[in-house]
């Protein structure tokens, strides 16, 4: 294999003469069994740089003075102003940045824990328990996967206005948390996983021993589905942390935003300083980078297994 595939891609479009030189992949190995050549590494390296550059650039500006933005060629190394910029972000009135971080942690944590619990019990019921209508109800879950919820956003806002309590739920964290407490994707994903991970015999033997449905869930199902819980938990946390449109509508203009809404406020107004904006953006990004660092393997697996709707 003197001519590697990577060679060819890199030189596309190939001139006719070159095209004739292309040799068949004679080994007959599937691509995933073929060792990568230097061009593959080079191009993947380039992809990596393009992926990380905006995040790195965010850090560079976040740690610099106003002058850094005007430098040409662009400033490459971070400066030493991060704490000062951050301090300004936190002390800005009308932005409520510190509160927003706390709110985001509350919202994402509550939603994640709730999704994990409700979706795993429902997935368990659909995968392993027999009850009338289970098939049609599961079809309904799958159908709801395809409906973009955003389209009901106007009506959701009106509905929140009628919720119990003074003035309804708009402007309170409840409006952001409660609709996120369950997810159709979570039910579907847990069901698929439980079908494969928990043998029927195990459930049967639990029944014979006189264990209740919930007892079987705690001692047999839950330990077996921990990997799936990790995947679903990470994807759910990331999704709710990053959610923007609905929180902006219901929490925008209040003194109780999530961090995404606070970033929007930081970037609005007449006097926007990007070293501040990006210092805030960086702070709101760090928790997720840590999550990717810790649970990247699980997230990749979740996505590759078809975990797509977050």
């Amino acid at each position: 294999m003197s001519t590697t595939t990577e060679d060819r891609i890199a030189h596309e479009p190939a001139p006719a003469a070159r095209r004739n030189r292309i040799k068949p992949s004679m080994s007959g190995r599937a691509p995933q069994d073929t060792p990568a050549g230097k061009w593959t590494y080079l191009l993947l390296g380039l992809t990596f740089l393009l992926s990380i550059y905006p995040i790195y650039w965010m850090f560079v500006i976040a740690t610099s003075t106003d002058a850094a933005l005007a430098e040409i060629p662009p400033k490459f190394l971070p400066g030493g102003e991060f704490m000062k910029n951050l301090d300004e972000v936190f002390s800005l009135q009308d932005v409520y940045f510190a509160e927003s971080l706390v709110n985001s942690v509350i919202v994402s944590t509550v939603i994640t824990v709730s999704v994990l619990f409700f979706c795993s019990v429902a997935g368990y019921a659909f995968a392993k328990l027999r009850f009338r209508g289970s098939r049609i109800l599961m079809v309904m879950v799958i159908l709801t996967l395809t409906v973009p919820n955003q389209l009901g956003i106007v009506a959701l806002y009106i509905l929140m206005g009628y919720m119990p309590g003074e003035g309804g739920w708009n402007g309170s964290l409840l409006a952001v948390i409660v609709p996120g407490l369950v997810s159709a994707f979570g039910v579907f994903y847990m069901r698929q996983f439980i079908l494969g991970a928990v043998p029927d015999e195990l459930i049967e033997s639990g029944r014979v021993d006189g264990a209740t449905t919930m007892r079987i869930y705690w001692s047999i199902v839950l330990p077996a589905v921990r990997p799936a819980l990790a995947v679903l938990g990470l994807l759910t946390f990331v999704g709710s942390w990053n959610d923007f449109q609905w929180p902006l509508i219901t929490l925008g203009g209040t003194d109780y935003p999530t961090s995404m809404v606070a970033l929007f406020d930081l970037a609005s107004g007449n006097y926007v300083l990007y070293r501040r904006v990006l210092a805030g953006a960086f702070v709101a990004t760090v928790p997720l980078i840590i999550l990717l660092f810790v649970g990247g393997r699980q997230i990749v697996r979740g996505i590759m297994e078809g975990a797509v709707k977050s």
Partner: peptide, 13 residues
């Protein structure tokens, strides 16, 4: 994992 850096970064950020 590194391919997911953009996916995980908050869209606002």
């Amino acid at each position: 994992v590194s391919m997911l850096l953009p996916y995980i970064t908050p869209l606002t950020a």
